[in-house]
Design a binder for these strands. Structure first.
Lengths: 248, 248
DNA sequence: CGCAGAATTGATACATCTCAAGCTGGGTGG
DNA sequence: CCACCCAGCTTGAGATGTATCAATTCTGCG
């Protein structure tokens, strides 16, 4: 069954929650008006697949609310998450027809989509869009490289701590709370999704989460609600500089 | 001792070997003329560090010839390669002051550098540059994600096979040979660099190279010169689709 | 209440790491 | 020209971290 059909309305960009962070962030009102003509909303339920790797993709778009994952799968079924899509993140690649990865909605998801052809044309004529997209892509590239260090060189415990630090930091930045001392947030991922993110098995994830809890690095209320009593302690466990790095 | 000082001359862009692939690929002759004003060449010897992570970076640029690596290092010394820079690849990030990674010349290296400030200004006024840089960044992002699958989910043997396939494919594409059947190339990396690339130890790299040789997947002449008698066999060993994927 | 998906925990297997010893080939100095 | 040297590489034996297989235990929900 479909969710509320707010999805079919196309609310004004001016009230959009991701207006200042998404690919349209630099656009002025004239440019926004052009985008409004080619935009439409789509909703997905938790668990639904937005797009399969290899499928033809006739749109690009932004995550407005909810969370989605980008995953790659080998023939024998091994899967690796290669991206975590949060509100304002961009999906799809201008200039390419097929999707390169599976995109799956982890929670209920709303996307602001643009038909691909007209969007590509706008990119040629509207430097603000291409400029913002470049900036966002460079940020994603940095995140991917950070992640490569996690996957290639960190232990299971460090991997879990790194993931919790990333999610905690993001949550704090959304709420503009300070990223120090006590942090509280909800895990948006199942143990299995965490495992796919970190290149581990779900059993190992479970064990290491338990270990971090036993050692007082984190506290759990239920399976998903996490309290970090001392964020710098978590960063130590992640093997990161306790100051949180220069690039964030 | 310094290498040949062709480096200090600034040859014309029209004869540049990476003219059609680098960040300037889409520029017309007027735009090239502007770039020529802010460009200069720098040479590095094999083993030299081009830039240390965290250092201030007052230029961006392209690899003209030779190979460099992008690596990240943890406090305790664990290192992970996060990028392999080949001719035409771009170094540096417009809009950022410090270098995010160590850049090290693996072979003798020539770079075409642009002073950062003027380059950033040109990016604003010259859409062709920003467009090409976006395209290149998206390609790098795809490569990074491919690599994440390798790091997170492949076995040591598959990792080695994947690396050999990547290098072999690149070499074939430079020589515009077909990527089928028999392939011959030189490894541009030491066993240790391969290990840093793949998130392994150098001993494991050595063992798996020996195993692939023993099993007839590759032949070695010396330590670095590799013959792959059957490229599709190598792809199977890498755990990839034997057709080589859709995205290349 | 009882089921199903998610998570935890345990026992064991195995891949890769670690530590250690030796090999190889190209360069250098006697 | 030979002997030596040294970085890069190979190989071995044992330690260790994570995967695998297999029960349970939670938790939310119809």
């Amino acid at each position: 069954m479909l969710t509320h059909d707010l999805s079919l309305a196309t609310p004004d960009c001016s009230g959009c929650p991701i207006r200042h962070r998404a690919v349209c962030a630099r656009c002025d009102s004239d440019e926004l008006a052009l985008l409004e003509e080619i935009k439409y909303y789509r909703s997905f339920e938790a668990g639904q697949t937005v797009i399969w790797s290899g499928d033809r993709m006739d749109f690009v778009g932004s995550v407005v609310s909810g969370i989605a994952t980008l995953t790659q799968t080998m023939e024998d079924g091994r899967t690796q998450m290669v991206g975590l899509l949060l509100p304002s993140d961009f999906v799809g690649r201008p200039g390419r027809d097929g999707a390169a990865y599976d995109v799956v909605a982890t929670s209920d998801l709303v996307m602001c989509c643009f038909r691909k052809k007209p969007f590509e044309q706008m990119m040629e004529t509207t430097p603000h869009i291409a400029q913002r997209l470049l900036q966002m892509t460079l940020d994603e590239l940095d995140a991917a490289r950070e992640w490569m260090l996690v996957l290639g060189r960190k232990t299971a415990r460090e991997k879990i701590a790194s993931l919790l630090a990333i999610i905690g930091r993001r949550d704090a930045s959304i709420q503009s709370t300070s990223v120090q001392g006590r942090i509280v947030f909800d895990l948006p991922l199942t143990r299995e999704a965490m495992a796919d993110y970190l290149g581990l098995t779900l059993e190992t994830v479970s064990r290491q989460v338990s270990a971090l809890k036993r050692d007082g690095v984190i506290e759990l209320q239920g399976k998903r609600h996490v309290t970090v009593p001392d964020f710098s302690r978590l960063l130590e466990e992640a093997g990161d500089d306790a100051d949180g790095g220069l690039l964030v």
